[in-house]
Design a protein around this nucleic acid. Structure first.
Lengths: 261, 261
DNA sequence: CGGTTAGTTGAGAAAGCTCAACAGATGTGG
DNA sequence: CCACATCTGTTGAGCTTTCTCAACTAACCG
């Protein structure tokens, strides 16, 4: 999400569909799984898979991850209560995950950018517990869970990787709880921008200048505050010379200052 | 924690230590691992392990979980930055897990009662990311992670169980984020008491009458509010006839009312 | 080029925090 | 076993942060 890095644009180029029978029309192409460019050749593999797979493991991985799926902006990849079949890895674009209370209140529990996993919530009950919604036109790789389990019984590296992925999600959520439980609105937004900057940097994009794909309301819903407060905090950061916000374009001017907030 | 159920008291009876060499003295006995009563015979197994293990799987489980450890009230089972070696299952007593910010602010991320897991945060980086502190004198089973991984490659049931355990933790934390992000202080305390009641009921204790082992401050630190606010909310619930709090003794009078808050 | 949505800003209201006093419970040493 | 010190919990008063409601502007879309 956020940035539009030229270097990834090839990933979002439409691939000819080999989905059986179904005629290739926009409405269909959008929902239809399609052959995945192979993991073994994927530029996102370092972000997504263990670094040290052998070539035979890579080969087997290619037989597990066979398809991708396109999700248009605003559409759901899965919803709460959907049966859980597969994990997903964001390939292009970006998503938000939300949990909904019965009374309609919703909480954004995360934003996912390319290379990041989706669907881990579904393992425990066999049913998804949140909605995953595309923030822009996006693509995901589909990882059928039963096949992945089999693979993990045969490959220690892959087994360990999946455990680490899930544990990482647990740790990420703990620090989010810390954010929601102990920080002021100002500190939350600063922490959010710093986290974003770090994730971009890690992927080789600029950590200082990016493009938010989510609205002020979605940021607020993630950080536990109202959109007006988000907006005020952006203005405050601008006044203090920490950040140069221009709508969804964000330029971080003073990284250390932001960290000190 | 909370309740002192007579039915579990046998679990906390001291077992003769066979820890090699070390003389049996209080200071030592408290820290020393000791032989675990076997999983195959454990009354907590339904809460802790998959329900459908074969007898050969049970036998193998007994070779993985060989020891327990006692932790005195206020002491840590592990700390953030400790190397990760093992998962733990609470056997008797109760724990809190906390994440600490560099500036000293801390957030309680969970309370664990018998049958619940500890240490899943350590898998992702090989280092624990939180402190686990005993709320009362407690015992845990020690589950060496490398052996568990081996077991999971051999047993689908166990493999699936560990995935479910971790995913369950992810889902639990999401709903906590929802709580912290969208609810009022009153709603948070109500949700907390209801969650507690449900967990007790599930273990066969009274869901309507229990004994909190954590302080008002710890509750506040978990729910993202100050201890004074926790205390005021307890008083409010009492005035409204929902809960009969008597210090740490809690009696839930009107479960539906509490759910409606 | 209207109509709609997203973002900014202000003013007043409300929830929760801080500080402070006090009461009960708990623990400790004489 | 009591007296004293220390924690833990409760309650009140005033203050701060954030929310709510409202007006307005800019950007986007058909």
């Amino acid at each position: 999400m956020y940035a539009e890095p030229a270097c990834e644009s090839t990933l979002s180029m439409p691939t000819p569909s080999r989905w059986p029978v179904v005629p290739i029309e926009p409405a269909v192409r959008e929902a239809a799984p399609r052959p995945a460019p192979r993991c073994s050749a994927c530029s996102l593999r370092p972000a997504c898979m263990p670094p040290d797979l052998t070539s035979s493991e890579l080969q087997q991985l290619d037989t597990v991850v066979l398809t991708t799926r396109n999700v248009r902006r605003g559409e759901t990849l899965f919803r709460a209560h959907d049966p859980f079949q597969s994990l997903y890895a964001v390939r292009t674009g970006s998503f938000k995950t939300i949990v909904m209370h019965r009374d309609g209140r919703e909480q954004v529990t995360g934003f996912q950018i390319p290379g990041e996993p989706l669907g881990l919530d579904g393992v425990c009950s066999g049913t998804h517990s949140c909605d995953a919604i595309a923030l822009e036109d996006s693509t995901v790789c589909i990882i059928p869970f039963v096949q992945l389990e089999t693979f993990c019984r045969e490959s220690r590296r892959m087994q360990r990787h999946l455990y680490q992925l899930m544990s990482g999600e647990i740790v990420r959520e703990s620090s989010l709880m810390m954010l929601l439980g102990t920080m002021t609105a100002e500190q939350r937004l600063a922490a959010f921008l710093l986290d974003l900057a770090a994730r971009f940097q890690k992927r080789g994009y600029s950590g200082a200048h990016f493009n938010l794909k989510m609205s002020r309301e979605e940021i607020g819903c993630f950080l536990g505050m109202k959109l007006e407060t988000v907006s005020r905090m952006f203005s405050r950061f601008q006044r203090e010379g920490l950040v140069e916000p221009n709508g969804k374009q964000i330029r971080i001017v003073d990284l250390e200052g932001l960290a000190r907030v």
